[in-house]
Design a protein around this nucleic acid. Sequence first.
DNA 1: GACAAAGTTAAACAAACGTTTAATTTAAAC
DNA 2: GTTTAAATTAAACGTTTGTTTAACTTTGTC
Lengths: 205, 205
Amino acid sequence: MEFNDKQIDILFAAERLFATKGFDGTSVRDIAHEANVNVAMINYYFGSKDKLLDTFFEWRVPDFMINVDELSLVGNALDKIDVMVDRYVKSMSSHRKLYRVIAIESTLKQRMLISDAFKKLKIHNLEVIASIINGGIADGVFKAGNDPILIHSMMMGTFMNFQMNQVFLQDQLGIADDDGYGQYIETTLTEFIQKTIKALLTYEK
Amino acid sequence: MEFNDKQIDILFAAERLFATKGFDGTSVRDIAHEANVNVAMINYYFGSKDKLLDTFFEWRVPDFMINVDELSLVGNALDKIDVMVDRYVKSMSSHRKLYRVIAIESTLKQRMLISDAFKKLKIHNLEVIASIINGGIADGVFKAGNDPILIHSMMMGTFMNFQMNQVFLQDQLGIADDDGYGQYIETTLTEFIQKTIKALLTYEK
DNA sequence: GACAAAGTTAAACAAACGTTTAATTTAAAC
DNA sequence: GTTTAAATTAAACGTTTGTTTAACTTTGTC
């Protein structure tokens, strides 16, 4: 998929607005104004507001993928967990707006026609996690009987919870600004998720 | 706060629609139709669509509270975790629509004017969790150095992730219907969260 | 430099939005 | 039974919505 400068301006503007106001809360005039283009340009280039959302998702989908190559370099199963979580959180953290949009819109069932592309990506990421866990079990480091789906849900959910409740959590944690919050996510929260997964995978009973 | 039958009809209708279509995606005419009342009744009783959302939250807030009395009956710190998680998930599970609405609308920053009532509730629940953890540390059962905020975020986030990605997860887990999904949440997912928290609180290093 | 295609614009479109109005019905009080 | 307030209604209000139109400008091609 190839986009010209104006199309990319629109996609970025849409991302910014969808992330803060939601899809339904954002008008095409909002987007046009934010992107400094004429309203008609959105329908001209993307067909409709709905198709703009679809295109937006397709445009961003590649940023979801866990990089498997990087993981194969790490030997220890415990270290693999650390690297995987670190990369996952960093990827999500650097695309926080995108994740907000997905979180908001994926809940509204009638949408997500493009869910096929997303489904494949989620399945890919699940398989990566499953292979790490199974490798750890084979090495005798991890206990068996832990569903990768649940671990993935825990990791995603914990991160998302930080995304969605930023105002409350930032206040509770005594963090001053947005940058500090981002740093907290990339350090303390990342370590927490790493620790949690390792604790779970080595827990008796 | 006292509501007559018609007002309650409207609140339930709003809950059903907000949970599936979001606040912005739902029109007052949708709500009026769903509740079998005239459109003007919504403004007559609630003032505006925005105030209806506020009133809806205030109406539902009490359902959030963790019941502390029930916990004091349990002696063992590990068992207290089990009971707390079980009650928490059951409470969330029985108000799934409400939690969807909160999850969707709490992300949109300009909303949540009523956040004061919510803030107090969240702080109450956090304090309950903190006291359980501290009790466990005092008894020598739990390791110190685990932030209750992170544990609470993990519990909420994991549950929410199941709420928000029902379509995908139900498919992945091979669950046939909505009831089965609810059962999975109240059994397998609950056990997973219990196990995760206990593993974390007893984990070395 | 003429021609066709692509890009861009302001204006207009009908439909849907939240809200208000004014008229009417119901209920309660005396 | 009359009076007064509350409840309910259909219709209309002015905006805003997403989209389309038709005129105009820019760009690239021969």
